[in-house]
Design a binder for these strands. Structure first.
Lengths: 189, 189
DNA sequence: GTAATAAATTAACATATGTTAAAAAAATCA
DNA sequence: TGATTTTTTTAACATATGTTAATTTATTAC
């Protein structure tokens, strides 16, 4: 939890009152590799997770049974099924741990209460969201303009340690190709 | 400008003081079809645009000369080069008008001042951003799991009037395919 | 340490889409 | 209204990636 306050304090001054409120709405959770935080189809998604350590991913299984990794999350990243978390309805993504993880968990209504009481925390969150929004924009632009090989090259530059943590078929599905295609790419010069 | 206050008032109560400040930082602009609001490569992007009427798109031209449409914007949507607007550096996207347009234009620093003075407007913006974030997440999920034909079907459902406003090659490049492939898809049953 | 299971690679063939070019249709301009 | 330009369609061929299956390698469980 001190790590989280350090992370916040990099950007805004957090006083003791804010720390107290945050401590009261956030749970520190530990999960083992393979454990599931959110399950596709569960009736709603109320929680978001901040990664203190470890690595997680979110994925969807579509109608033909194929699995597509939507997001990886490492230390200092947030993860949830944001489509259901910010929107309405049941979860369309599953969130699972690729390694043993320590995360902070909180629900949306509690976080909104913190924002009401401490608008500077809301501002910080907004700027974080703007950064995430930029990352998704870049990802879409890259998806449109790069072939599979170039997307893989960018991915390994952006997430240097991911190949030692995620399975190749996770990475392939994140890139929008099959594991056979990724193997083919990895073998090429 | 009254349309904009109506749009805001759908969600939050805007008092006269807020209206006055907003009026002082927002310019109403009119553009003709084909005009350019942001040019790829321009040294920085300080402005965002709210569409009162008409239709715009943003696109990137990559190294091989191909053009990829990143976003369409219709009435009540915001558009900019958000990678450069929220991030740093020169524009990587071009924003152009597909029809005659009326937009509201404001710069980021002025908008931040409005947020400081009226935190409820910042909250409204944050929720808007959350909705946009959800749309991008959905787009990525769709890009990963749907083939070109299904993406086209979804697109025409999401933007029913776009085909009468945008060129087919714009739509094809938004979907991540060539105009020949889009023609092929449109001809199929 | 070994057996069982999961992950990764490889190959042959199939399919979706890209590329190139030409022709037709539509839009724009004078 | 006709000429010009742009957009769209179509066809033939090329390429990137998918599919299926088999084999190899790595990991996990006992």
């Amino acid at each position: 939890m001190q790590d989280f306050f350090k992370y916040l304090n990099k950007n805004i001054d957090i006083n003791d009152e804010a720390k107290f409120l945050i401590s009261s709405i956030i749970k520190i959770r530990e999960f083992k590799k393979g454990e599931i935080l959110i399950t596709q189809g569960q009736s709603k998604v109320t929680d978001t997770y901040f990664v203190l350590s470890g690595c997680l991913r979110s994925y969807v299984i579509c109608e033909n049974g194929k699995e597509h990794t939507v997001q990886f999350a490492i230390k200092d990243w947030w993860i949830s099924d944001y489509i259901a978390y910010y929107g309405k309805g049941e979860a369309i993504l599953t969130v699972e741990c690729l390694t043993d993880c320590i995360v902070l968990q909180s629900d949306k209504l509690s976080i909104e209460k913190v924002f009401e009481k401490f608008p500077e925390i809301e501002t910080f969150h907004r700027k974080n969201l703007e950064n995430s929004f930029v990352r998704l924009n870049k990802r879409i632009v890259n998806q449109l303009q790069l072939n599979a090989r170039d997307r893989y090259i960018n991915f390994t530059a952006d997430f240097p340690k991911m190949e030692s943590v995620a399975k190749n078929y996770h990475i392939a599905s994140y890139l929008g190709i099959t594991q056979q295609s990724l193997s083919r790419i990895r073998t090429q010069k």
